[in-house]
Computed example of a mutant assay.
Amino acid sequence: MPLAHTVRALALSLAVPMLASCSALSALTDATTPRNVFELQAPADLPARAGRMLARDVIIEEPTTSGALQTDRIMIRPGALQAQYLPDVRWADPAPVMVQTLMLRALDSTQAFQYVGRKPLGPSGDFAIVTELIDFHAEQDPSADSARVVVRMITRIVRERDTAIVATRSFAASASASSLDDEALLGAFDAAAGRVISEFAAWATSSLGAG
């Protein structure tokens, strides 16, 4: 093969991996573009239980949910069958983990139980709280630049020694966002989630004999 042809073939063979690398680097850059990070807080006004803590270990398991919510992206639905995510913001943790944290902090703040955690201190806890996160998204109003945030979950209290279901309840709340701005939407998330978590904490303490 003439030398010129050899050089040309070598140059083409090197160009293909370089182009692939550039494409991968571009995708990586897009994926790691910084976004504003937000974290919801558990309600600060939950009443503490009077008297001594109950000698019970309560384990709050990570909620199960659909694949669309198994992410740190913040979902907004422009239509009933559409799911999109806000482009420039994200949660500090995937939505189920953040909800688990809210539930844990809220129940712990009641000072009703000797231990509230994600995992038992020993082989098992006394009770496990098992949750399915159904809705955790904003719904855009098609006729206006506003939205409604919906938070809904089903929670069960399970006695660990015999896996009996002690109590079951659904929780749901919604809050309006006056605009589609990130701050307005996140304020609505905070309001709706706060109501659900407050109701959960009151129900759990009552169902476990601490109410």
Rank of each mutant, 00 (worst) to 15 (best):
R77S: 12
L14F: 08
V97S: 12
A68L: 14
V37S: 10
V130G: 06
S124M: 04
A4W: 13
S143V: 08
A188V: 05
M98L: 11
M53Q: 12
V196L: 04
E39D: 11
D182V: 14
E62W: 01
A31K: 13
A128L: 03
S178P: 02
S66Q: 06
I134L: 01
R161H: 15
G122W: 01
R52N: 11
S23L: 08
A106R: 09
R161W: 04
P94R: 14
P78N: 01
D72R: 15
G125W: 04
A27E: 05
L19K: 04
D72K: 13
A95T: 15
A128T: 14
Y115M: 10
A24G: 07
E61F: 03
V158A: 02
S26G: 13
L19I: 11
L10I: 10
F200N: 06
L180P: 14
A55E: 08
S176K: 13
G211A: 03
T163A: 10
R77E: 05
R56V: 09
R52C: 01
T29D: 09
T71M: 05
W203Y: 04
A147K: 15
E160C: 09
A175I: 15
A191R: 13
T29N: 10
G209H: 05
T163I: 04
Q100M: 12
D181M: 12
G122Q: 10
A128V: 11
A106E: 02
V99T: 14
S206R: 13
G79K: 10
A48C: 00
I157N: 09
I74F: 01
R90H: 11
L102M: 07
L40K: 08
V150H: 11
L69W: 07
A15K: 03
R156V: 01
A204N: 07
A144S: 14
T71I: 07
V196Y: 08
P123E: 02
S146D: 03
L12V: 11
P34G: 01
G51E: 00
R90M: 07
S206K: 11
V150E: 06
A92N: 14
